[in-house]
Amino acid sequence: MRCLLCQQSFIQSLTLADIIYFRVLTTSPICLNCHRKFLQIEPDLACSGCGRLQTRQGLCQDCLTWQKKYPQLLHNRALFTYNDAMQEFFKQYKTSGDYQLSNCFTSVLGQFLKKMPADDYVPIPTDTKSYQRRGFNPVCGIFGKVVPLYECLNKRELPVKQAHKNRSERLATAQPFQANMDKCRPLAGKQIILLDDVYTTGRTLFHARDCLLRAVPSLKITTVTLAR
């Protein structure tokens, strides 16, 4: 088998239990060497607001700041720390547009989300222009093979790309999302998980939550990202 990230061929290491229980289906398409470069976040050591890895309990500095504006924080859960390896992954996946990489974390995400049941999973959308340029929505790519997605948000085109803005500019950005009312109505009273690829400042997810809550005030929303 060829590793999706480094192109080296590798042998799936199976434990005896894997063989007995036919657990081959959950094997990873990336090699152990590449896998080790990603830093999985221990849930007990994560900030209860944004899900980042930290050494102390409770909320991190960023979340304390957010709390002044949003008393109700996101309770985001992230699977990995956004380190060099993750940055490199997103560069190849999103910037270069290597859609095959959307399979990299399917099995780990599957195990991760199994512990977080929800009625529906709502991905953060991309705007039409990015979708046409890239040919895919990166969030749907990553999560679409893991859980059924419920797409009920639209995104307006933004004049400046997010990546080119600095932190304060990003924080000040106006609401980019619109709720698709027809799709939102059936969600009343449900528990949903909002999905995004990276939690950077939290701005995007707060906007998306605001937008959904305005459309369906009875929604219960938590969030999950691949990286923080």
Binding site: Q92, S96, G97, Y99, Q100, Q132, R134, G135, F136, N137
Partner: peptide
Amino acid sequence: SVQLPSGTYYCPTCL
């Protein structure tokens, strides 16, 4: 193996 959700195909080799 190389189809994007938008329907087009791409080449991973010379990406």
